[in-house]
Design a binder for these strands. Structure first.
Lengths: 200, 200
DNA sequence: ATAGCCATGTAACCAGTTACATGATTGA
DNA sequence: TCAATCATGTAACTGGTTACATGGCTAT
């Protein structure tokens, strides 16, 4: 089968990351676990496999960096061919991700469930999202303490971080509202109100 | 391998839907394509397979309903065993879905891209989300025109719809803001402002 | 000593997508 | 006559997860 890049975005996520800075599979994993993980997730097994494939396709190359006191590592960097492939992908349309959210399935079917347990589950999710939000807000701070040159450099990653912040805030609001309605055994009395306070 | 239900939510999504109302694979697909599709997606091939498995596990049963003028259909309904399994799942914790969003990968790597094309891509996504939002808002209307008994009946589905509405609104706001910043080649000057106007 | 980080992988499996297949009826 | 709706499926494949595997170094 001929793979014309169309979707398969783990590949492109890795190329984007290597284009910013060369690194090993392990390095990439750390980046996936902090920051980029908010919009792209991968396990180390997948990353190592993908790097292998990318190398076979000549989109990346690597040099073994010998280390004493630590295991050697393969430092991957994007090739000229890789850069061209990445650019082509950046210019091709992508689809919004299809959502499969188990929690919403639960809420949909919650009549069969114990209401107290359902509320506890919502509380648990509120806590999870608050934890993520706190993390993202901490990541936001250095951006505003940096000078303009730095801000410009990190502009694009910061824009994606803003998406993450909004996402978590939005979930927390919905969860809080929903939890309250379940607790009171009440029905919503108003349509979803829009929108945020304007930034001006 | 023994499957103790832990994740595998397509299974539970189907059980939840059949618990609300019996139906054929085709019926379920229609429900996936409208309403429930906002938080759970499946292709017809997947649904038919899953119903087959569910039937083998005795969690659902079916009766063939012969039809003239139309193909016969298998009307599935949840069994007592199925109801018990569903209840157990409703009481077990679930994880928030892991997000893999290609558009954000693109924004992250947008320095390599043509700015005009990137803006066009954002415009395209704004239009997609506006289309979804309009659809959801249309679905919201009958809820507020219904009497209290009906509102109570559709309370839980409506709560999930509210999540969908917020989701689309939130995306549109971020996309609009981001599109503007790219157009002006500007950097964000303020942290993400919170929050929505309160409902009171 | 024991856990955690550094660093890389294989193998089996599950979930989801794409392609292919059939065939009658209804409406434009 | 052509496309859409109703209705159900098989087969091949891709992408993602879980389990298993190794092994030295560092800090508590």
């Amino acid at each position: 089968m001929i793979c014309n890049s169309l979707h398969m975005s783990l590949k492109h996520a890795i190329l984007v990351m290597l284009e910013r800075e060369a690194g090993s599979g392990y390095d990439l994993m750390q980046r996936f676990n902090s920051g980029i993980g908010h919009f792209w997730n991968a396990k180390h097994q997948q990353v190592y496999q993908e790097l292998k494939k990318l190398n076979q396709e000549k989109l990346v190359s690597y040099q073994v960096k010998a280390q004493t006191e630590r295991p050697d590592k393969k430092v991957y960097r994007i090739t000229a061919v890789g850069r061209r492939a990445l650019k082509a992908w950046l210019h091709a349309p992508v689809k919004p991700p299809r959502v499969n959210d188990a929690l919403l399935v639960k809420v949909f079917g919650a009549q069969m469930a114990d209401s107290k347990l359902m509320q506890a589950e919502l509380d648990r999710h509120i806590a999870l999202h608050q934890r993520s939000l706190a993390e993202y807000l901490k990541m936001e701070q250095p951006y505003f303490q940096a000078d303009e040159a730095q801000q410009r450099k990190y502009r694009l990653p910061y824009l994606t971080l803003r998406r993450g912040i909004r996402y978590e805030q939005d979930w927390i609001e919905w969860l809080t509202e929903t939890r309250e309605l379940l607790e009171k055994d009440a029905v919503p009395t108003k349509p979803v109100l829009r929108s945020r306070r304007s930034d001006d």
